[in-house]
Simulated assay, not measured.
Amino acid sequence: MTDFATNAASTPQDRLEQFQTVASSAFAPLGIVPHDIRRLRARIRAELTGGLLVSDIRSSACTVNRHFRHISSTDNDVYKIVLQVSGRMVVSQDGRRSEMLPGDIAIYDTTRPYTLEHRAETLGREDEFRTIAIACPRPYLAPNAATLRQVIALPVPTRRGVRRLVAGFFTGLADELGTDVALGGIHLADSLVDMIAMTFTGRDVVVENGRSGLADRITAYCEANLADPNLSPRMIARTHRISVRYLYRLFAEQDRPLSAWIRSRRLERIRQDLENPRLAGRTVAAIAARWGLYDAPHVSRTFRAAYGISPSDYRRHALRTSEIATRRAVD
């Protein structure tokens, strides 16, 4: 559970840095520009349940930017679903720019740049906005990706019908943060994903049921958290409210054990980073650490076993090939 509030006794710049650090850590790296830094105040309450992060954000007016420079391969790939409770917000992404009024809900994608312009409204003596945001790993909504791409940054009113019930559920969930929300685990996450899909596509999300559906969700969770060095069967089981024994049994029919799959995906991410000319200044050990692997000799051995070549030799060959191709393209 995250519960952060700016300290009124701190300097305006310190409050901004604290707000930006907590927001970037909870959601994804981003920049925050307050409309009046002297009056800046903010509070973020957030809790993880079944792989989804539910958050309640209240702040004075500000603009949030996620530029290309903020986006990296180590970020969690998530959709953000936001319900505007008070104040107004202008959301911009993929060439769309839309104003959200209280009661509107919208979705945007953290894998691409976006801008959120929060405009406060007067509430008694305080000027603030309130937004409820749910961060949902993109694989959870993968079957609906094509439809969601068409509604990115387009507000949907929730003032009547089923969507009004969805908005009420989101608000009630935010009000209960810090109590027993996390106990809902994967079952609550399933309900939230269904509501999100219905809200933006007009139909139920396409998911598999039972053991297969749970295995898919766990796989998506692991993919989104490969950079976490603490990712382990025990952590995965605890997050999804199942036993380690059941986790092993769930993946017993797969081609390889879950731990071996996680290792192979980390090696694949390392391989991709070694091919990236922009990361040429980083050591192999630093790149491996980006993906949760800190034992350099072990990484070298497993990389050679997987690809038949050492990480350093692979990088030299990949960068040389890229340089030659670039020169030919210029010529």
Rank of each mutant, 00 (worst) to 15 (best):
Y140V: 01
R119W: 10
A215S: 14
E268V: 00
S24V: 04
W291K: 09
D331K: 12
Q18F: 05
G172C: 09
Q20H: 06
D194W: 11
A142Y: 03
I196E: 07
P29G: 02
R278Q: 14
A237S: 08
A224E: 11
T6W: 02
R66W: 01
G281M: 12
H187L: 15
A288P: 06
R245N: 13
N209P: 07
V64F: 03
S92N: 10
L274Y: 05
R327A: 10
L231Q: 05
Y108W: 14
L165S: 13
Y248R: 15
G51E: 02
P277R: 13
E128Q: 12
V207M: 14
G87T: 02
S264H: 14
V166Q: 10
S72Y: 04
D104F: 07
A227D: 09
G292E: 09
S259A: 14
V284G: 11
H298D: 13
A182D: 06
I287T: 00
L101W: 09
C136G: 00
V151E: 04
T2K: 11
L154R: 15
I37C: 00
I152D: 00
G185F: 07
P157S: 10
T199D: 05
R88L: 09
D194G: 12
R327Y: 09
I57Y: 09
P137L: 05
E128H: 10
R266E: 08
G51M: 05
R320T: 12
I37P: 00
A133C: 13
S232T: 08
N276P: 02
P229Y: 07
S243E: 10
L148D: 02
P297K: 07
A167I: 09
I218H: 01
R315H: 02
